[in-house]
């Protein structure tokens, strides 16, 4: 029996090995073709004079500026300043907004009491509060982490509340019929059932975190990708400026893919809507 199942397993693995590289290649081509085209256009347009190369340098120039900055470690220090701030603010928001949202969602009274104030805060653009944060917390790290935290909190909090409220009542009924304690109900039913909706909020927060952080760094900072972009613009280091912008895109991609991978891990049980 065991031998047979081993054989089946190794046959399956073999199958995977022979099929997958081709499929993977096909997928890679499909996913990167438009992207490659974009870079090609970027390369050609300034060269043939379609756009002014002084303001819009060719891709190869931007890439070489990027490479030089990478070698001189200049890029890394800005990148790490930005990613540290965004992860600190974002992580803080997750650590506080999720438990809070679970509790608020669970108790109708908390929900009714807090809903108006939550709506007010949610609709206050985080960037509008930037001057307030700088006044109160100065232009150091604290104000930047605080504004990222502020911007991330609302989508996470509101989606967590919605997630708890929208748990299928039949699942609750079914669990209750098995006479489980309120704590178990919360921990074993409400929490796992809420994860998909919670993640919608977390991903929204991830996008918001970068947006707000870059803006904050542009206004008042001595370090970070946002600061670097405005700095290079003022000093007319145009290829460097584009390199900074590209780096922000990379930062965004890293955060987004990290969250997607985590989400996939936590909701493996969900039907893949693309299948």
């Amino acid at each position: 029996m065991v031998a047979i199942s081993k054989q089946v397993k190794s046959a399956k693995r073999l199958h995977k090995l022979t099929i997958n590289p081709l499929l993977a290649l096909q997928k890679l081509v499909k996913q990167s073709i438009v992207l490659l085209l974009f870079f090609v256009v970027w390369e050609i347009a300034p060269r043939i004079g379609l756009v002014d190369p002084a303001f819009f340098p060719a891709f190869s120039e931007v890439a070489s500026a990027w490479w030089n900055m990478l070698l001189s470690n200049e890029l890394f220090s800005h990148f790490s300043a930005s990613i540290t701030r965004s992860i600190a603010g974002f992580g803080l928001a997750i650590a506080i907004a999720i438990p809070l949202g679970l509790v608020i969602g669970w108790y109708p009274i908390a929900r009714d009491l807090l809903n108006p104030i939550l709506e007010l805060f949610r609709n206050t653009a985080a960037l509008a509060l930037l001057p307030v944060f700088i006044l109160l917390l100065g232009i150091g790290e604290t104000s930047k982490i605080a504004i990222v935290f502020f911007a991330c909190t609302w989508p996470i909090l509101l989606n967590t509340i919605a997630a708890v409220r929208n748990v299928d009542p039949l699942l609750i009924k079914s669990a209750r019929s098995m006479n489980i304690s309120s704590f178990s109900l919360f921990y074993k039913v409400i929490l796992p059932a809420s994860i998909p909706t919670m993640f919608t909020g977390i991903r929204m927060a991830g996008t918001g975190a970068i947006l707000v952080l870059i803006a904050a760094e542009m206004v008042g900072a001595k370090e970070g990708l946002g600061y670097f972009i405005t700095y290079s613009q003022y000093n007319f280091m145009i290829p460097e400026m584009y390199a900074g912008i590209l780096t922000i895109s990379i930062l965004g991609l890293i955060i987004n893919y990290g969250l997607l991978a985590l989400e996939k891990r936590l909701s493996r049980w969900k039907q893949d809507p693309t299948v």
């Binding site: 079914s174 039913v189 909701s267 049980w269």
Partner: peptide
């Protein structure tokens, strides 16, 4: 007086926990 494991209920819409096998 309340629910108990001396009774088991089966509902029309299955009521299975989708995150469990």
């Amino acid at each position: 007086k309340g629910p108990g494991l001396d009774r088991g209920t089966v509902f029309q819409q299955y009521a299975l926990f989708p995150w469990k096998t």
